[in-house]
């Protein structure tokens, strides 16, 4: 009986709600026409702002292009850097069998995967090159650029110094100011602070490359540069208060102990050294 009553109620609701909702109207505040007009404006703006459409195919094409460019630049710009700290020398083999011997405190950078297209290295410091014959071989430095075909030569690129010594073959040198010279064996290019290149011919080349055998030869070299060289070769710090322009001429062979070297160099130019720690030395005038 109760079920029946509930059933009647349900039936009543069913019929009533049908009657109540059927045939009603929607009074929208924003008409369909208004919405369409707005949509068309939006679509026009889009079409104007973006004249090409990114369909899936184009996205794919763009992605592959990007991949190729990415791979290409990886090959082009992937670089190997060799940093030689003070106290050591290092021999670097380049992909074509050319070799670079790096002096202490120097760094070299090259692009191994691009090597077959262009032989180019970047050098800061001092190095001796033996270059296999082939297409041009370029050494870039802050101070200048040296181009060769296949030779051996030494480059010193430190601070404001840029000195290239040709031992065999032909060596082209260009300063940052774009002055160019070509060196024959036994000649040397020295880039002056103003960018002019001074060529010295028929020089004795041994002092330029003696560093390879740990022999250091200085000819009228500012004493500060000599100390810098000692710092690099021995990985020590040398502090000096010397302002006067002292030129040093002499040579020495790297020995076990840096003090032996300082002992040898200082008295010759009227200086003395004192040891503060195994890696720190002070230089003062001998008569102080």
């Amino acid at each position: 009986m109760k079920d029946n009553k509930e059933h009647i109620k349900l039936k009543a609701i069913d019929r009533q709600s049908q009657a109540f909702f059927a045939g009603g109207t929607f009074r929208w505040k924003k008409s369909e026409a208004e919405v369409l007009a707005e949509l068309n404006r939006q679509l026009d703006r889009k079409a104007a702002g973006r004249s090409f459409r990114l369909s899936r195919r184009w996205v794919a094409v763009a992605a592959s292009l990007l991949l190729i460019v990415g791979l290409g630049s990886l090959l082009r710009f992937y670089a190997i850097s060799v940093d030689v700290s003070a106290g050591t020398h290092q021999l670097v083999d380049l992909p074509d069998g050319s070799t670079v011997e790096l002096n202490a405190g120097s760094s070299l950078r090259y692009y191994p995967y691009w090597w077959s297209f262009k032989r180019i290295v970047t050098l800061d410091g001092e190095a001796f090159f033996e270059v296999q014959k082939g297409r041009s071989f370029v050494v870039r430095s802050l101070q200048g650029r040296t181009t060769v075909l296949g030779t051996s030569f030494n480059i010193l690129a430190r601070g404001s110094n840029y000195r290239v010594t040709c031992l065999s073959g032909r060596v082209g040198v260009r300063s940052r100011q774009r002055q160019k010279v070509v060196l024959m064996p036994g000649s040397q290019a020295v880039v002056q602070p103003d960018g002019k290149i001074e060529v010295r011919e028929n020089i004795e080349t041994y002092p330029e490359i003696s560093w390879r055998e740990h022999v250091f030869v200085f000819t009228e070299t500012p004493i500060q540069e000599v100390f810098e060289e000692i710092e690099r070769q021995y990985k020590v710090t040398i502090q000096s208060t010397i302002q006067a322009k002292i030129l040093y001429t002499g040579n020495f062979t790297k020995e076990e102990d840096v003090e032996n070297i300082l002992e040898y160099v200082c008295p010759a130019v009227g200086l003395k050294y004192s040891r503060k720690s195994p890696t720190l030395y002070f230089i003062t005038q001998a008569n102080e």
Binding site: A19, F20, F21, A22, G23, G24, T25, F26, R27, W28, K29
Partner: peptide, 8 residues
């Protein structure tokens, strides 16, 4: 507010 049933 939006839907108006048929007047009856």
């Amino acid at each position: 507010n939006t839907f108006v049933p048929r007047e009856h």
